[in-house]
């Protein structure tokens, strides 16, 4: 079993675990944090499946945009639930421990990539034909040009719709 497969199974199990936690938490803020971690581990699996551009989009749009928006709205509509997220001191120690563990893991992987034979093992095939982002761009702007334009109109409609729906009616 190669490294890719081992890490795929690890990230798959972790994302399934956090997805389960997302739908079972009582507090919506905790559920949103679990959802963030689920999206992050799914992005890790995208990297392992040679979809590096999609992994970046996943982290930017889902982890950065959607979950951030959800957290904003959760804090906006439920003041009492926002108070519940106050953390105890015991969790802070665990958090620091996990953060150090992540730093060590990333340092280990980058050292492995620097000294070992693993440098660029993820996308060496793709790099020869111009890289993942370039090939996605080439297909997106030729074969999928019409859906791309339709989706931009859809985003505009969603933007206007969200503003109109969430506007405070009392001010009128």
């Amino acid at each position: 079993m190669s490294y890719t497969e081992i890490f795929f199974y690890i990230f798959a199990v972790l994302s399934i675990l956090f997805a389960l936690l997302t739908v079972t938490r009582r507090n919506a803020v905790h559920a949103a944090i679990c959802l963030l971690l689920t999206f992050f581990f799914i992005a890790c699996n995208y990297v392992l499946l040679e979809a590096e551009f999609l992994a970046a989009v996943q982290v930017l749009v889902y982890a950065g945009g959607v979950v951030g928006l959800m957290l904003y709205v959760i804090m906006l509509v439920r003041k009492d639930e926002a108070d519940e997220v106050r953390q105890s001191l015991g969790q802070r120690v665990i958090a620091v421990f996990i953060a150090i563990l992540f730093v060590l893991e990333i340092a280990f992987i980058s050292l492995l990539a620097y000294y070992g034979n693993y440098s660029g093992f993820l996308s060496s095939k793709m790099a020869q034909i111009g890289g993942n982002t370039e090939s996605i761009g080439a297909v997106l702007y030729t074969y999928f040009l019409l859906p791309f334009e339709v989706v931009s109109v859809l985003l505009l409609a969603a933007l206007v719709g969200a503003v109109v729906l969430a506007k405070n009616r009392i001010e009128r």
Binding site: V57, Q58, V61, Y62, G65, V66, L69, M70, V73, V151, L154, L155, A157, A158, L159, G161, A162, V163, V164, L165, A166
Partner: peptide, 14 residues
Amino acid sequence: ITVAAGEAAVGLAI
């Protein structure tokens, strides 16, 4: 992902 982002924005506004 684009549709999901729009869906989240409109859904949360609703």
